[in-house]
Design a protein around this nucleic acid. Structure first.
Length: 488
DNA sequence: TCCTGACCGCCTTGGAATTC
DNA sequence: GAATTCCAAGGCGGTCAGGA
């Protein structure tokens, strides 16, 4: 009885409580009934006994005495019953309290479960974050170029700069090429070492005038080469600049997307809504569908009849699977023929599809190439702008420096450290002890954070520390200005 | 609370596609 | 090349979210 009441849910608990009260009331009533019956029995027997004990007394006196005794006994009985009832009521109250506590416990647990489920949904959603931001085009192009260069290096060995970039041949090599065949024709038996040695001696013996055309050719080749390399270097620099710009944009976009995603996930988690969209892989709609197997052809044919027999999908699957297993090769043959035909058709369609894909890829590559050219152009323009801006900044700095040097006066009072600088000095010392090896920019950032975290009173204290020096500086400056104006 | 729409599971075999 | 995974068909019923 008590177990059933405690184990129930809210409704169950209430039902249990009612049942418990009813049972206890019933028990109390039974006890009261029993007591009354016992009282009646007792009163009857005692009257009989008393009648036997007092034969000398008058009948009236005996009766009166018996009634008094009965009343006293009944009162005692009633008192006991009252106490029992109170006890029973107390038990009911205790049970009620236990039930109430259990109900509260269940409610708390349900709330906690709900909260955990919402958390779980949020975490699951966070796993699904798929940014749509693609790698900056410039970067991907640079990486492709890098790959191509690496492949080129692998194929052609170390030191080769690339397929189209050939280092200029020195004058001697140019001359050597001219002379090699000649020497070889003169000495067909001579091996590589011998020919080289002969030509080396000959080269040393050549006059400056004889070497001059080769030197000139080398100079021209070298110039052209340096021009190409310089242009490539410049383009690379420009592309890097553009890449940095694009990377910044991408990072920002990515952050925006992630924040938006997080917000949506939080909202969904809170409102118990989880999207299941896009769970399937993105399929190419133009891709031909896979052909049906022989079994599928059969299954499809059988379906109509089985559906008419009111069979559901899983049942149909089981039945057709079983039937297929028991069929002979001859029985399967027509379905296999259909499947073969479908497969052939599929293969034909796939051929067309694959060809289409190849063409698309080629077209994409062409497009990419054009885009690359545009990018290069844009990058160069960007580089020009940057150089212009850098030049302006450089000149401004130089001018300022020049002016400063011109105006520099050793007698001018030096501005004292501000409250922040005083704080910074101390904080720096402390932070360096706490985090040895920390870089300066991080350190400065930390100092700034610490400064901002200071309370009004703390900041006041630092201001007070800086104040005397600042007052002195102001005074000195006033005097200095006066002196300056009088000298002018 | 009801309605609607989207999505998924059910179940099978065998071949294609992909991964290791 | 072996192992694994995915996909093809059918339609009903269940679940869930969002809106009225």
């Amino acid at each position: 009885m008590a177990t059933a009441a405690a184990a129930g849910s809210k409704r169950g608990g209430a039902r249990g409580r009612k049942a418990l009260v009813a049972v206890l009331d019933n028990e109390a009533n039974i006890s009261a009934g029993k007591a009354a019956a016992q009282a009646a029995d007792l009163s009857a027997s005692s009257a009989q006994k008393k009648a036997k004990r007092a034969p000398a007394r008058t009948k009236a006196a005996v009766a009166a005495s018996a009634v008094v005794d009965d009343v006293a006994e009944l009162q005692g009985m009633l008192e006991r019953l009252r106490l029992e009832k109170e006890k029973a009521e107390e038990m009911v109250r205790e049970r009620d309290e236990v039930i109430r506590k259990k109900e509260e416990e269940i409610e708390t647990k349900e709330k906690e479960q709900g909260r955990l489920q919402a958390e779980l949904r949020k975490v699951q959603r966070a796993k699904e974050f798929k940014p749509t931001v693609s790698l900056p085009l410039v970067k991907s192009l640079l990486e492709k170029d890098q790959d191509a260069d690496d492949k080129g290096k692998k194929k052609k060995g170390k030191g080769k700069a690339g397929p189209e970039r050939k280092k200029p041949c020195p004058a001697y090599v140019l001359w050597l090429k001219d002379q090699w065949t000649e020497v070889k024709e003169e000495n067909p038996e001579a091996d590589f070492k011998e020919v080289s040695s002969t030509l080396g001696t000959k080269w040393k013996a050549l006059s400056a005038e004889e070497k001059q055309p080769y030197e000139e050719r080398y100079r021209q080749e070298k110039e052209a080469y340096l021009q190409v390399v310089g242009q490539e270097k410049r383009e690379a620099e420009a592309m890097k600049l553009l890449e940095e710009q694009q990377m910044q944009w991408t990072a920002k976009e990515l952050l925006d997307q992630y924040l938006k995603f997080r917000q949506e996930a939080e909202e969904e988690g809170d409102s118990k809504k989880g999207k299941r969209k896009n769970s399937k892989k993105d399929k190419d709609p133009s891709k031909p569908k896979q052909p049906m197997s022989a079994y599928f052809v059969y299954s499809q044919e059988r379906r109509a009849a089985l559906v008419a027999e009111k069979k559901n999908v899983p049942e149909i699957g089981k039945i057709t699977g079983e039937e297929w297993k028991n069929m002979t090769e001859a029985q399967k043959a027509p379905y296999e023929k259909v499947a073969r035909k479908q497969k052939e058709e599929y293969q034909k369609q796939m051929e067309v599809y694959k060809q289409k894909k190849i063409e698309e890829a080629a077209s994409l590559e062409k497009e990419e190439e054009e885009h690359k050219k545009i990018m290069k152009q844009e990058a160069l323009q960007l580089l020009k702008k940057k150089e212009k801006a850098d030049n302006i900044i450089k000149k401004t700095k130089e001018n300022r420096q020049k002016k400063k040097q011109e105006n520099a006066d050793p007698n001018r009072p030096k501005r004292p450290a501000s409250s922040f600088l005083l704080f910074s000095k101390e904080a720096r010392k402390q932070l360096l002890e706490e985090r040895p090896g920390i870089n300066n920019s991080s350190l400065n950032a930390l100092i700034s954070v610490k400064w901002k975290e200071l309370s009004g009173e703390e900041r006041q204290a630092w201001n007070a520390k800086a104040a005397p020096a600042m007052a002195a500086y102001k005074k000195e400056m006033e005097e200095y200005t006066k002196a300056q104006s009088s000298s002018d």
